[in-house]
Amino acid sequence: MTKRCKFFYAICQVLLKHQGPIHEFTLSMRANGSCVEIDHILLNLARRNTVKKLKLDLNGEYKLPVSLFSLHRLTDLQLKDCYLACDPSFNGFGSLTVLYPEGLIIDENRLLRLLSSCPLLKRLTLNYDDNFYTSVTNLFKCLPVLEYLSVWSFIASFPLPNELPTMLVHLKYLRMEYACSGHEEWLDFFVFFYQKLPKLGETYLGK
């Protein structure tokens, strides 16, 4: 039996023998393309439906199965280096308050739909290696109670809206790096947010 097989066998045995709820689960490994073993692990977690914090660092292009969308009790979700295609029947993560998708392979429409399905989301960190284009208005419309936003290499050069959505009054922390192309845009962006967001206590804009 290979080390990889032994690794998955050990995880499955622990999950099968564990009788109580599982509130946190972390898996960090390389998984390119499909991986039946990870599919089975996530399906097992979905059947229990007790996980509140899930971290998947898969260092590849593993396609997450639809069973992920059955984890309705999630409050903290971290997805790194994997592929996500939203299930058409997905009704949302109603309890999710923290989302950290780093290097997540997903198109703009699916990402905005994912964000819109998390009505209680308070902390969002978007970390991408390549510029991911979307309008600032479309992004913020998905985040009604957001308090913490950290963005890296996500929003390229864009015109600022005249007004921000009223729901952004909750935003307390804003960090944006490599999000605009010119110095003047950075300055305008900083002034705009500082004036429009009454609760904003800490802001960092860098490049």
Rank of each mutant, 00 (worst) to 15 (best):
K207A: 07
L112A: 10
R175M: 02
L197E: 01
L205W: 09
E163A: 09
M176N: 01
C118A: 15
I11H: 12
N49A: 05
T2I: 08
R175T: 03
A46M: 02
L84F: 09
D57Y: 12
A46W: 02
T134R: 12
P119G: 06
D39W: 10
N59Y: 10
E163D: 07
R73S: 02
V136I: 15
K55N: 08
G201P: 00
G94N: 12
L99W: 03
L120W: 03
M29I: 15
H23I: 14
L168M: 14
L187Q: 05
R110W: 01
G60R: 11
E177F: 06
L68I: 08
F158V: 04
N109Q: 13
Y204C: 08
S150V: 03
H183N: 10
V36H: 11
P119F: 06
L149W: 02
W186L: 09
I38S: 04
Y128S: 13
T50C: 12
H40F: 11
K52E: 12
K55E: 05
K207Q: 03
D39H: 14
K53Y: 05
P165N: 14
A179V: 13
S150N: 12
F193A: 00
S28D: 06
L171S: 01
S95N: 15
L171T: 12
N44C: 06
K196Q: 10
T134G: 02
L64E: 02
E177N: 05
L45H: 08
T50E: 09
W186D: 09
P159E: 11
P119K: 10
N32M: 08
K52I: 00
L64A: 10
T203Y: 04
P144W: 14
L114V: 06
L112F: 11
L58C: 02
R47N: 10
I41E: 08
M1W: 12
T2H: 14
D107I: 01
D39A: 05
Y128M: 13
Y194E: 07
T26K: 13
C35H: 10
A46Y: 03
M167D: 13
H72Y: 01
V14L: 14
Y83N: 09
